[in-house]
Design a protein around this nucleic acid. Structure first.
Length: 476
RNA sequence: GGCGGCAUAGCCAAGUGGUAAGGCGACGGUCUGCAAAACCGUUAUUCACCGGUUCAAAUCCGGUUGCCGCCUCCA
């Protein structure tokens, strides 16, 4: 099935067809390494990780590039404040980022370039832009002249005149037009600098992505991604720089993800309503977080709340419990009993993912699939060997693409069951002891005593289930 | 102020021209000592509101209201 992608500038889905058959170059804006990442960053990383995994699954030879901004005002500010170098700051937070990505099972892109390691490419590009009169030097800094680039605003659906009319940016004497943006900045005392034809300075933010994406993927990218907040001005500026330099279409498909919100406000540093990946994954299983972040369409906002996380946790447990049932079923059926269900699921899952990476719909299909499997097993617990094979294969596809359901069900369920048991203030042994006491009471038909034990445990978040194989317990 | 986006049941949510996926919750049922889990059934004649186009609209067009975002660093 062919893939459809919603392309930001034209605001509709298009059939995906890369520039070179079978090969895809994808560039995604990474982080500015000056602080710990929050779940807004996690969403973007997980979405593009999933897109990359799916493209590979579909057989594309993908080159995935994601940059690190390691020279920037905020990094420098942080370094100066702490009396350390900008490298100390960026290196620390790049390390922290890697730890986060490992926790979240985000696969490494093929190339992770750092801005500081590509200054010569940026200087070359800036020189070319000056040469073509798209840029001008002013007091040692270099600015891009937006009025010289006729397509300016095509990505974000803005007109240059409208933007000038409603401009809020401070008037800068050095600029010809308030919307002109810096390609090269003169370095002030205490700021890092590189030698250039214009001054001892440092690159503007936008030029790094144009220079590095071209360096690794060529002047035309198949896919360029990032958060919605990057559409303007960052990605708009990238187009101006790259198309100005090379005179070729910069990007074939622009993909932008929606924000993580809290009470419907964008999660951000300035609002102070952010939660870091690190603190969150201490209490929330990474697969729960992944499932939550993938359970809404990538372009929509997703509101973070404890309730929403709890719902995703419940859904993940439901999936794993159903899988556990299948893997514990006797392999004695002479004919496959789940094969049709699995085949149907595989097709629907692929169709959903092919339709603009609709993970929300794909997860809906996992729910339906789970219901169908449970229904089949309720009528008769037997399965055939082929069923188990087919399920393992389907499961491996899902986990390879979405990064959930990667664990053995029994292992996952056991983990969830015991996580933070100490917070409740009870041990495994104590619960088992209470279950034994309750069993005795039940055998003596003293249901009042038995129910009291169960109610007390329930009040502490422990649920007892009486099954044909005996009583088992779970966390609420 | 300029520009863009969104509005689907009690809640979350998919759905861009063909007659409303899925999940949570609630209620009824099977099962159970009673529960829990699982399953079955019920839960939007209707998609913020008003007009329009069309044989046909949640989906397209115009307007209104509300919310969010970008225009300054931002995933």
């Amino acid at each position: 099935m062919s893939i459809e992608i919603y392309n930001t500038p034209i605001k509709r889905k298009q059939q995906f067809s890369p520039l070179k058959k079978g090969r895809v170059g994808m560039y995604v804006c990474g982080i500015t390494a000056y602080d710990m990442c929050h779940i807004g960053h996690a969403r973007s990383m997980i979405i593009f990780d999933t897109i990359a995994r799916f493209l590979r699954k579909k057989g594309y030879d993908l080159t995935y590039v994601r940059n690190f901004t390691d020279v920037d005002d905020k990094i420098i500010a942080r370094a100066n404040k702490g009396g350390i170098t900008y490298q100390d700051v960026s290196e620390k937070y790049i390390e922290e980022f890697y730890t986060d990505m490992e926790i979240l099972k985000v696969e490494k892109p093929d190339v992770e370039p750092k801005a500081s390691e590509h200054i010569p490419e940026m200087i070359d590009m800036i020189a070319a832009l000056i040469d073509k009169s798209f840029a001008y030097e002013s007091g040692g800094s270099v600015y891009f002249n937006v009025s010289r680039f006729k397509g300016y605003g095509k990505l974000s659906s803005r007109k240059l005149e409208d933007m000038i009319a409603g401009a809020r940016v401070d008037v800068d004497e050095a600029k010809k037009n308030p919307l002109d943006f810096a390609l090269w900045k003169v370095s002030k005392t205490g700021e890092p600098w590189w030698k250039s034809p214009w001054s001892k300075g440092r690159p503007g933010w936008h030029i790094e992505c144009s220079a590095m994406s071209t360096h690794y993927l060529g002047p035309t990218l198949d896919i360029h991604g990032g958060g919605r907040d990057l559409i303007f001005p960052h990605h708009e500026n990238e187009i101006a720089q790259s198309e100005g330099t090379y005179g070729k279409p910069f990007v074939r498909y622009w993909i932008h993800n929606g924000f993580v919100t809290v009470n419907n406000d964008k999660m951000s540093k300035s609002l102070g309503n952010f939660l870091t990946i690190r603190e969150l994954t201490k209490e929330i299983h990474p697969e729960v977080l992944r499932l939550f972040l993938l359970s809404r369409h990538y372009r929509s906002p997703i509101d973070f709340s404890r309730d929403a996380i709890h719902e995703s946790r419940g859904a993940l447990i439901r999936f794993y419990e159903s899988l556990d049932r299948v893997f514990n079923s006797p392999c004695s059926a002479t004919k496959p009993r789940l094969k049709n269900i699995i085949d149907g699921f595989n097709n629907k899952f692929d169709a959903a993912m092919s339709d603009d990476f609709n993970t929300a719909k794909a997860i809906g299909h996992i729910h339906e699939f789970t219901t169908e499997v449970n229904r089949t097993l309720n009528s008769n617990p037997e399965v055939a060997e082929d069923d188990v094979f087919a399920l393992r294969a389907a499961l491996s596809d899902v986990s390879n693409i979405l990064g959930i359901l990667e664990q053995e069900p029994a292992e996952f369920l056991d983990h969830i069951k015991h996580a933070d048991l100490d917070k409740i203030g009870i041990t495994d042994q104590e619960i088992e002891g209470l279950i034994l006491n309750r069993d005795k009471a039940r055998k003596a038909r003293d249901f009042k005593a038995a129910d009291e034990i169960r109610d007390n445990l329930k009040a502490r978040g422990i649920i007892l289930k009486d099954t044909p194989e005996g009583t088992v317990w779970e966390r609420e």
